[in-house]
Amino acid sequence: MSSTTAGRRPARHGLGVLTAALHRWLALIIMVVLWELGTRAAKSVFFPPPSKIVRQMYHLWFSGPVSHLFLTSMATDNILPSLARMAVGLAAALVVGVAFGLLLGRSDRVLAYLDPLFQFFRVIPPPTLAPVFVVLFTFGTPMQLASIIFSAIWPILLNTADGARSVDQLQLATARVFRLRATTRLFTIILPSTMPKIFAGLRLSLSLALILMVFSELLPGTTDGIGFLLVDAQSRSDLPAVWATIVLLGILGYLLNVMLLVVERRSLAWHHGARRTEAT
């Protein structure tokens, strides 16, 4: 019963939430404090204290007008295009990866033909392909998208194939007994059953997409983006801005991952629920 499974977990409220949050963030807080103290004592231009980095972040990106949600034009001109490229790249990797993954997982013949090829492509470090992509695609967004897609697609594709291959035989037998149409079988049995694996792949792909987003913006021919800001700040020897960009990337990566986890928890509620009942 849902009520009993919910009741078995300790109720969290008031002080409990606070201590849990504190435990979670304690190491980070201590690290930042030590960082601040250390950099202030060292007084090195290469290592500005975190307080200065935060002020720089505010000054560069978050001191804009209210009508732009406090974002400066520098932020809207660079952070948003980066995120847009990453979102489009990841979405394309998801669609293509899931489609090929299902094919690969459900058809032994397709698997036999394509698996060696995919295993080969998968192990190529995506940055090494940048020179190829530069030739194949136009500078800027097309080449950047290609880099993101090519790196983010593999975890999704191979995880989907793995999940589609291991759909429960009895669920498939049930589908046959009730003579479900191929589309019904795909969308109500194979795809949902593969979902946990797809999300596992997506989590890996998300971090790869973030890496390739920045990396592709470090290349020549870039006119905007977070990676562009980084190169730009470096060429001007603006160390606080370099650090600010790095911190921004960390925060973005963290927030994107949290968002993905929220989506996953919602779409896989059945999976976690079923696992919980199995465990008890």
Partner: peptide, 11 residues
């Protein structure tokens, strides 16, 4: 089937 937990779809 005997194995109801596998024949029903958990989602």
């Amino acid at each position: 089937f005997q194995d109801y937990s596998r024949s029903l779809l958990p989602w």
